[in-house]
Design a binder for these strands. Sequence first.
RNA 1: GGUGGGGUGGCCGAGUGGCGAGGCAGCGGCCUGCAAAGCCGUAUACGCGGGUUCGAUUCCCGUCCCCACCUCCA
Length: 483
Amino acid sequence: MALRLYDTRTAEIRAFEPLVAGEVSLYYCGATVQGRPHVGHIRSAVCFDILTRWLEHSGYRVMTVRNVTDIDDKILEKSAQSYAAGFEPSEDYPAAEPWFALAYRFEQVFAEAYAAVGVRRPTYEPRATGHITEMHALIQRLIDAGHAYPALDDSGDVYFDVRSWPQYGELTHQSVEDMQDAPDADPRGKRDPRDFALWKGHKDDEPLTASWDSPWGRGRPGWHVECSAMSTKYLGAQFDIHGGGLDLRFPHHENELAQSAAAGDGFARFWLHNGMVTMNGEKMSKSVGNTISPDEMLARARPRAVRYFLGQAHYRSQLDYRPGSLQEAQAAVERIENFLDRALPQGHGAGVSGELPEAFTAAMNDDLNVPAALAALHETVRAGNTALDAQDADTARSCAGQVLGMLDVLGLNDVPEPGHDDAGGAMEALSHLVEAQLAQRAEAKQTKDFARADAIRDALAAVGIAVEDTPDGATWSLRGGHR
RNA sequence: GGUGGGGUGGCCGAGUGGCGAGGCAGCGGCCUGCAAAGCCGUAUACGCGGGUUCGAUUCCCGUCCCCACCUCCA
């Protein structure tokens, strides 16, 4: 069965066929780098990372582009605040920081946050500020086609003319007439309050560094135009998939689609939107204050568990966080790891086949049904454990190979685990100390001195080292940092 | 008011016109010196009311509730 995906625009699941055989072009919206990432950004990235991995596993060559919005109202506002009298600097927002320094700094924080849960870098990450000329060209095409106009006042803005584009609303299935009037719409210079800015004229209180010359006067880009300009520059006038969070459907993606289509570009063939992350059923947002940051998650559970949690629900479903979610995810992850440790001790994993179970493949092809894919993974783990208990090493090894293959697709094998990969010499030294303790404990057990054996185990447990007995002797692992 | 998505066992979370995915937690058992890990077993689950059907959680109608978006939003 081939891959089928849900397309927001047509509101249907249909077979995915790329524009160019064997190649997939994917654009998905990244962040406006005005602050630290929150888990919604990371969930979105995990979803599209899994999509990318699945496409690659399916044999496609995938070009992925994710934008960095490094100029916008909020970035300028945060920077301006840092110069204001009475500003109190914090760790996240130092005093007197230029907007471009702020944006660049947070861009790097985002990169670290993505990497911490094993999200691979896109093929390219274009910045809005680096594509002003492409935006100008697009805006000019829209003006020439009669779908955009310079502001009727002297603001220097350029607006998209919503009324000139009958298809406006097609992505979110709304008609312009039915839209609720925007309470904060500032109609100055607009033909219709729903018209949106392609170009924003420079204002005197904004730094000159945040403006560029244009045929319509000095200014800066509107929010939506960058994605149209950059996606088509790197992926072509028409490309396969455009993704992003559900909350970007309107206005952001609707406007992107309108301006690109009105300019004559085919644009995205599939629109994919991931669901929101909620806390006890409500969307996490800073204004409500019900947030947990990626850093806080990583402080509460291992990176691999955090990724498992963020990726475990279907990508279109809402993902609910509540106390205990991460511990549950970690328990599930460790169940998988325990099996691999039993089946492939000490690096015997080399050369095992990563062939995937049919149920897993079918689930992934069915609009990336990760929950069903995880069910297949866990069933393979159980089958493998059963085989181990029956001394059937070949079956166990085969199951382990399949599990490794599935973990690769889900990206769980790529998550860096501190204290595991990079502890180097310290880990080596610790290993000798623990082995010596275990040898003493084995001796105690030999002489049936269980009190002493338990004392050693308890002492190790007290410092975070878990000891488990197996038919082949005791094994140990660091609690919180997998062996 | 408009648009879209939901309400599944203690929790999370798939799915299906009829043999109850999966994970976590719980209980019982096997194994173990004891644990841990693992395996086996274990649940009168599908918001409510009607209808269609031999049979509905799944389809239809009605109804209640929740969530998201309607120009800051992943």
